[in-house]
């Protein structure tokens, strides 16, 4: 029984990982790719860790799996925040068809911010 539930969780996790990586290849600019990474891949890895917890089923595996899930959730969202902020600050433009960029509007007056040339 545990093995069946674990296998189902593994399959869901690998599918989400695949969708996230397809998004990494298909989506048009850096910010959209970061979105795909922090949603799909993190969710897939969480499901894989949950599957491992159910599959192994000992107390130490469950505790370490929960710690791992907490770390992956916290660190990946923080890393996504840092990467997107750094990309915007270094002048990576938004993709074609973007609706609005209020961040660039507000950053115009700040010292040290260079408008990108493209």
């Amino acid at each position: 029984m545990n093995e069946t539930i674990g296998l189902i969780l593994f399959v869901i996790g690998v599918l989400f990982d695949l969708f996230g990586c397809v998004g990494l290849v298909r989506l048009p600019d850096v910010y959209n790719r970061i979105q795909a990474s922090t949603k799909c891949v993190v969710l897939g890895t969480t499901f894989l860790l949950l599957g491992t917890m159910v599959w192994v089923g000992t107390a130490s595996a469950i505790i370490k799996g929960l710690l791992c899930i907490a770390f992956v959730l916290i660190t990946s969202s923080t890393a996504a925040h840092a990467l997107s902020r750094a990309a915007h600050r270094s002048g990576v433009p938004l993709a074609e068809g973007s609706v609005i960029d209020q961040y660039a509007d507000d950053l115009q007056g700040e010292p040290g911010y260079e408008e990108n040339e493209s």
Binding site: F10, G13, V14, D17, G20, C21, L24, V30, R33, I34, S37, V41, V42, G44, T45, L48, L49, G51, T52, V56, A61, G65, C68, V72, S76, A79, A80, L83
Partner: peptide
């Protein structure tokens, strides 16, 4: 971004190996 995602995928890989 790709390097970041690769790290997360490897964590999932280690889970399966476990």
């Amino acid at each position: 971004v790709a390097i970041d995602i690769l790290g997360t995928v490897v964590v999932g890989f280690v889970a399966i190996i476990t």
